[in-house]
Design a protein around this nucleic acid. Structure first.
Lengths: 141, 141
DNA sequence: CATGGACCCTGGAGCCACTACAGAGTCAAC
DNA sequence: GTTGACTCTGTAGTGGCTCCAGGGTCCATG
């Protein structure tokens, strides 16, 4: 329960979100524009803090800005059914699992590549496997 | 051993690299500019094909354009030592492993989130855990 | 020789989610 | 009133493409 409004720097410190990013979120309509001081400084209130924390957490979980926008819309209507949120999490989970699988394949390939060869590029497994995947030792490009 | 030069479409089909991307690679100096037909069409030769395949493979392995540039420079000098290549693979492997670890944590959190709650947003675990990480069931934003 | 359709050209804008910067103005403590 | 931290706006840049408009080229047909 913060009583006094705070500047953008305070909001940044309390959320770990970059100042530039906060202004960016306002620009794209993710964070509502706050009141301003006489000199034009942004003056945030507690609900901005809550909302930005929500956004931050969503971003940390890898949701896109658009998904977060949708989740915020949901969150604003406590009586609405939450299938939408469930759907979004499932979709995102699928995506993350696919990414992990892809990166794991990648990792295995990179592991095979490392522990380079002899001494010079001409015999280098790494360069070789880039030149012709599957077999090493090829002419350089 | 292709004898006739081929157009950008042919190069695209043989490598799986988008035509626009090929032109982009030329623009940023990754692929050398080929000869041109009288009408201005790009005419590629076998060495372009080899080089683009190298680039493609590097991208598939997740290397950045800059890394690929460096690897190509290495590949061009068969007598040079290949520690550089080894280093790059190790660095990249580290990065990939870090990414996998991050995504795995993410996946576990998303798994905890799914199988939404009751029926409405007010009791929704998903919205709740975005609102306040660690504990569910909070007021909406 | 004309035509049609597939192909290709250039230059520029757009994507995502920020991040960086210049040049100016504001605020609060001393 | 001065200092120094803070904030403002607007614009441009990042990576790695991707898409588009508005035109030109190529070559197999009729």
């Amino acid at each position: 329960m913060t009583l006094q409004p705070f500047n953008i720097g305070g909001l940044s410190r309390q959320t770990g979100v970059n100042i530039e990013t906060i202004r960016y979120y306002e620009k794209i309509g993710l964070l509502p524009p706050p009141a301003r001081s006489q000199g034009g400084f942004r003056q945030y209130e507690d609900h901005h803090l809550q909302r930005l924390r929500f956004i931050r957490r969503g971003r940390d979980l890898g949701f896109s800005i658009d998904s977060i926008r949708a989740l915020l819309t949901l969150a604003e209507r406590p009586d609405s059914p939450c299938e939408g949120a469930d759907q979004m999490v499932l979709l995102h989970l699928d995506e993350v699992e696919r990414k992990i699988a892809d990166l794991t394949l990648l990792r295995d390939e990179l592991r095979k590549m490392k522990n380079c060869c002899g001494q010079v590029v001409a015999q280098c497994q790494i360069i070789g496997s880039l030149t012709a995947p599957g077999s090493a030792q090829q002419d350089a490009i």
